[in-house]
């Protein structure tokens, strides 16, 4: 039995959102299961099922994954901030 991760797009233009998983022998039966389990009541324009084995998870810990988060020089300071303040922050 394969585990399939399920992604749903609610309306055109929305990102596909991970909603959970189903177990099924193949992609067709996984899609059949995912539709009735996850989008019985909600609007939906797109549905993906992905074999869990095909999902590649980055193995970096949170501090490595988020290392870009602290880089001040990539940030906008907002309207009105003088340009030399940006360089000054380095």
């Amino acid at each position: 039995m394969t585990i399939w991760e399920v992604f749903v797009q609610t309306e055109g233009g929305d990102p596909f959102e991970h909603v959970g998983q189903v177990e099924a022998p193949n992609g067709d039966t996984a899609t059949l299961a995912a539709k009735e389990h996850f989008v019985r009541r909600d609007p939906c324009v797109g549905l993906w099922v992905v074999d869990r084995e095909d999902v590649r998870s980055a193995s970096w810990p949170p501090d490595v994954l988020a290392s870009g988060h602290e880089k001040v020089y990539r940030r906008s300071l907002g309207r009105g901030a003088p340009d030399d303040v940006l360089a000054g922050r380095l």
């Binding site: 585990i3 959970g20 998983q21 189903v22 177990e23 389990h37 019985r40």
Partner: peptide
């Protein structure tokens, strides 16, 4: 009743 089966499924995973 169908919803409850789905709840079991969600929690099972």
């Amino acid at each position: 009743s169908q919803d409850e089966v789905g709840h079991g499924l969600g929690l099972m995973t």
